Amino acid sequence: KSEISQVFEIALKRNLPVNFEVARESGPPHMKNFVTKVSVGEFVGEGEGKSKKISKKNAAIAVLEEL
């Protein structure tokens, strides 16, 4: 299972809201860097990556460590 689906499963079991959002985009158009924030109830994680998908996955990994 992907880290993102694990976050949603845990949140569902604990009845917590999940929110993913792109917090920052930086860099030139051909080499963008994304920072995504995820919140699961009061737990927050942040991930960085060269694409929105990678930064979302890294944010999920960060919040899984707290859950």
Rank of each mutant, 00 (worst) to 15 (best):
K1D: 08
K1A: 05
K1R: 10
K1H: 02
K1F: 03
S2I: 00
S2F: 02
S2T: 08
S2Y: 02
S2D: 06
S2C: 05
E3Y: 11
E3R: 04
E3W: 07
E3A: 13
E3P: 13
E3S: 09
I4A: 02
I4S: 05
I4C: 06
I4W: 06
I4V: 12
Q6T: 09
Q6P: 02
Q6A: 08
Q6H: 06
Q6G: 03
V7Y: 01
V7Q: 02
V7I: 08
F8L: 11
F8D: 06
E9Q: 13
E9Y: 07
E9H: 10
E9S: 09
E9K: 11
E9N: 06
I10S: 04
A11F: 00
A11T: 02
A11N: 03
L12V: 10
L12G: 13
L12E: 12
L12A: 15
L12S: 14
K13P: 04
K13R: 12
K13L: 09
K13G: 07
K13V: 09
R14N: 09
R14H: 10
R14T: 06
R14E: 07
R14Q: 09
N15P: 00
N15I: 03
N15T: 05
N15E: 08
N15L: 04
N15R: 10
L16R: 03
L16E: 05
P17H: 11
P17M: 10
P17W: 04
P17L: 09
V18G: 02
V18H: 01
V18I: 10
V18E: 04
V18K: 03
V18Q: 03
N19K: 15
N19D: 08
N19W: 08
N19R: 15
N19L: 12
N19H: 14
N19V: 11
N19A: 13
F20L: 07
F20E: 04
F20D: 03
F20A: 04
F20S: 05
F20W: 15
F20C: 06
F20V: 10
F20P: 02
E21Q: 14
E21N: 08
E21I: 09
E21Y: 10
V22N: 11
V22M: 12
V22T: 14
V22D: 11
V22I: 14
V22H: 12
V22P: 15
V22R: 15
A23F: 11
A23C: 12
A23H: 15
A23E: 11
A23P: 14
A23L: 14
A23W: 10
A23R: 14
R24Q: 12
R24N: 09
R24G: 09
R24T: 12
E25D: 14
E25K: 15
E25W: 09
E25S: 14
E25V: 13
E25A: 12
E25L: 12
G27A: 08
G27W: 05
G27E: 06
P28T: 10
P28D: 10
P28A: 10
P28E: 10
P29L: 08
P29D: 13
P29C: 09
P29N: 14
P29H: 11
P29W: 07
H30A: 10
H30N: 15
H30D: 15
M31I: 11
M31Y: 12
M31E: 15
M31S: 15
M31Q: 15
M31V: 11
K32N: 09
K32M: 10
K32F: 04
K32A: 13
K32P: 11
N33S: 13
N33A: 09
N33Q: 13
N33P: 06
N33F: 07
N33H: 14
N33K: 14
F34W: 15
F34G: 04
V35H: 14
V35W: 09
V35D: 04
V35K: 15
V35M: 12
V35R: 15
T36Y: 05
T36N: 02
T36I: 00
T36A: 08
T36M: 01
T36S: 09
K37N: 07
K37C: 08
K37Q: 08
V38D: 03
V38Q: 02
V38P: 02
V38R: 02
V38G: 04
V38L: 12
S39P: 02
S39F: 11
V40W: 00
V40C: 07
V40M: 07
V40R: 01
G41T: 00
G41W: 01
G41P: 03
G41R: 00
E42A: 14
E42R: 13
F43H: 14
F43D: 03
F43N: 05
F43L: 11
F43W: 10
V44K: 13
V44C: 14
V44A: 09
V44T: 13
V44E: 10
G45W: 03
G45N: 03
G45D: 03
G45F: 06
G45K: 11
G45V: 06
G45E: 05
E46C: 13
E46N: 14
E46L: 15
E46K: 13
E46P: 00
G47Y: 00
G47Q: 03
G47E: 01
G47S: 02
G47C: 00
G47H: 04
E48N: 13
E48G: 07
E48K: 15
E48Y: 14
G49D: 04
G49R: 02
K50N: 14
K50G: 09
S51W: 03
S51G: 01
S51L: 01
S51E: 04
S51R: 08
K52D: 03
K53V: 09
K53W: 09
K53S: 10
K53I: 08
K53C: 07
I54N: 05
I54E: 15
I54D: 13
S55F: 00
S55N: 01
S55Q: 01
S55P: 02
S55L: 01
S55C: 04
S55G: 01
K56I: 11
K56Y: 08
K56C: 04
K57S: 05
K57L: 10
N58E: 08
N58M: 12
N58I: 03
N58C: 05
N58G: 02
A59H: 00
A59T: 00
A59E: 01
A59D: 02
A60L: 06
A60Q: 01
I61Y: 05
I61D: 04
I61W: 03
I61H: 09
A62L: 02
A62V: 06
A62H: 08
A62I: 06
A62P: 04
V63Y: 00
V63G: 05
V63N: 04
V63E: 04
V63S: 02
L64M: 09
L64K: 05
L64R: 04
L64A: 05
L64W: 02
L64N: 05
L64Q: 05
E65K: 15
E65A: 13
E65Y: 09
E65F: 02
E65S: 14
E65G: 12
E65W: 06
E65R: 15
E66N: 14
E66M: 15
E66L: 15
E66K: 15
E66A: 15
L67K: 04
L67H: 07
L67T: 03
L67A: 04
L67F: 06
